[in-house]
Structure formats: C-alpha cells, structure tokens
C-alpha cells in the first residue's frame, strides 16, 4: 500500500491546437482531502476526466494507488468513485433501483450489496427518497444520490467534480459536512471555483489556471506564499492633509492610501512588519492628536490570492 494515493506526472491534454491542461504534476497522499481549484474553464474537469481515464491524456501519466489506467483500466476504475460535473444520473430510475444497478456493476451482490445500499441511503440521508424517481428529486438530493453512487463500493479514492455548484446555502452545508465525513476515511479530491468552500474543507489545495498549475500547498501556505506584506485599515478623525506624509515617515511603511469621507478618513497602510505594527500606528495617531475610530489588521484571504493569481492573466 503506497502512501501516495494519486500521482499525476506531466499530465497534458490538447484538443487540436488548444491546450486544455499543460504539464500538470502533483501528488495526493492517502487520507487527504485535496481541493482542486480554478476559475471556470481552467481545465479542472478535463484533468478529472483524465484521472478517471474517461479520456486519455495527450501525454503524461496518472497512477492511482500505483496503478496506471493505461496498464490496467478496470482495476484502476475499481479504486475510484467518481461524481462528474452536473451530476448525471438516470432520471427514470428510483433511488433504490439506481443504487442497486450501480452496486451490481461495481461487483457487489447479495448481502454485501444490500448492506452497502442501506449504508449509503443512511449516510446520505436518502431514507425518505428511496422509492422516488431520481428525476423528481431536488438538486440537493440528486447530489446525494450522486455521492452515494460514488461511494457504494467503498473506493479508496473519491473524485468529485464541482459537488456543490448550483446548490443553495443549506444544501452546501449538508454536502460539505458529507464530504468532510468521507474525508475522515478516504482520500477525496474535489474541484470547485468557490474558494472559501475549498479553504474550509481541504487539507491541501491546488490552484490551476489556463490549464497550468499555479500553486499547491495547504491553504495557509498558499496564502502566506502570496502575502509578503501586512495591511492595516484605519478610520481616523483629523486633518487628512497631514496623514499621508505622517504615516509615510514611518520606516516600515510601503504605501499609504487615503480616502477622506464626511466624518472620518479611511486609511489603508501596507507595511513590512508584523501584526504588532498596529501599536506603532496607534501611537502615531495619538502623538499627532488625531482620533482613532477603527484599526484593523487586514488578513489576506485565499480569495485575494485566488483573484490575484487567476485574474491577472486574463
């Protein structure tokens, strides 16, 4: 049993002259919840289709638990549970029929099949829906059926393509809980273009843009990687003509932005210092005889990083 659940090396996909995924390499360790992040059209789905061996790569290699799809397609597919984007299901079947169908195709039978079906119905809270045709279910329930389908054979690796897109906030919370629950036992890779979502659930994230890997690491690492400077936001009452120079005289300050408003002045300061620089700023304000209304240490979020990384190239 290898520690590496998924190894992707130099994965490339070209459609004619268009390169959808370019030289993508990364590793996902056993037991990780791994976020696959990028704006729409970044190559997330194409990558996942190559990882699940639905389409072949133009070049590069994918190994799931050490097994390459090119060498042993069926064995590799057995290790994976996959939920494609937009959750394609057979709408004419009932939930129960569908899960039995998938279970049988996954090679389950008899008591094991029954047990797994019941477990999935239980885990995904589908008890009330078992007899209903899938086509009549709400989007959130369809998503659960999709997840149940992907997990029924207890795969070692779960691959979920945009599992929460198109859901309402309550459904998002439910599905997120479900993913987190699954992540305790299995390796999960899931893609999203919604950043806070991934930051909240994933052990590590990968950001992809225009088919290329932008960065990879824990949410903290990724955030830190792109924030060399610390930012403070202040609201001050006082003479704004003095403020810009007043703050710029401080050695650590890199830039000062000033926006005067009716009652107070908004000041944004970027500096080469840590959080404790707030104290110096406070002292400065007091020394100058201004009145301080607000002082916030602005924490750069993954969202900022994401916008910065993926927006700049367009």
């Amino acid at each position: 049993m290898s520690e590496k659940m998924l190894e992707v090396t130099g994965l490339t996909k070209r459609f004619g002259s268009f390169t959808a995924v370019n030289n993508l390499s990364f590793t996902v360790n056993r037991g990780e919840v791994f976020g696959f992040l990028g704006p729409n059209g970044a190559g997330k789905s194409t990558s996942m289709r190559m990882i699940t061996n639905f389409i072949p790569a133009t070049s590069g290699e994918v190994r799931v638990d050490g097994i390459s799809g090119a060498e042993n397609d069926l064995l590799m597919k057995k290790k994976i549970g996959y939920l494609p984007e937009s959750t394609p299901l057979y709408n004419d079947m009932s939930v129960e029929e569908y899960l039995r169908f998938v279970g049988e195709l996954r090679g389950l039978k008899g008591a094991v099949l029954k047990r797994q079906m019941n477990e999935m119905i239980d885990v995904c809270s589908l008890t009330k829906m078992v007899k209903r045709p899938i086509g009549h279910l709400s989007k959130g329930y369809k998503q659960r059926v999709g997840l149940a389908q992907a997990m029924i054979h207890e795969p070692e690796l779960l691959i979920l393509d945009e599992p929460i897109s198109g859901l309402d906030p309550n459904q998002i919370i439910e599905i997120r809980e479900l993913i987190r629950e699954m992540g305790k036992k299995k390796t999960v890779i899931y893609s999203s273009h919604i950043l806070p979502e991934v930051a909240a659930t994933c052990d590590r994230i990968l950001i992809i843009n225009n088919g290329e890997l932008v960065t990879i690491g824990t949410p903290d690492e990724v955030t830190r990687q792109f924030t060399g400077k610390t930012t403070f936001l202040m609201k001050i009452v006082g003479d704004h003509s003095q403020m810009k120079t007043g703050f710029e005289n401080l050695a650590e300050v890199i830039s000062v932005q000033i926006v005067p408003e009716d009652s107070a002045v908004h000041v944004k300061i970027e500096c080469n210092a840590d959080e404790s620089f707030g104290e110096i700023l406070f002292d400065t304000v007091v020394a100058r005889g201004w009145k301080l209304r607000e002082l916030t240490h602005y924490v750069t979020t993954l969202e900022d990083v994401f916008t910065q990384l993926t927006g700049s190239k367009e």
């Binding site: 994976i80 494609p84 394609p88 299901l89 709408n91 998938v102 195709l105 996954r106």
Partner: peptide, 14 residues
C-alpha cells in the same frame, strides 16, 4: 445528452 455516458464509462465495465 444527459452525460450519463461519462459515469457509465468510468465504472469498471468494458
């Protein structure tokens, strides 16, 4: 059309 083909062909069946 329903894209169920993608799922069908990623199950371990020939």
């Amino acid at each position: 059309k329903n894209r169920t083909l993608e799922l069908l062909l990623t199950w371990p069946i020939k």
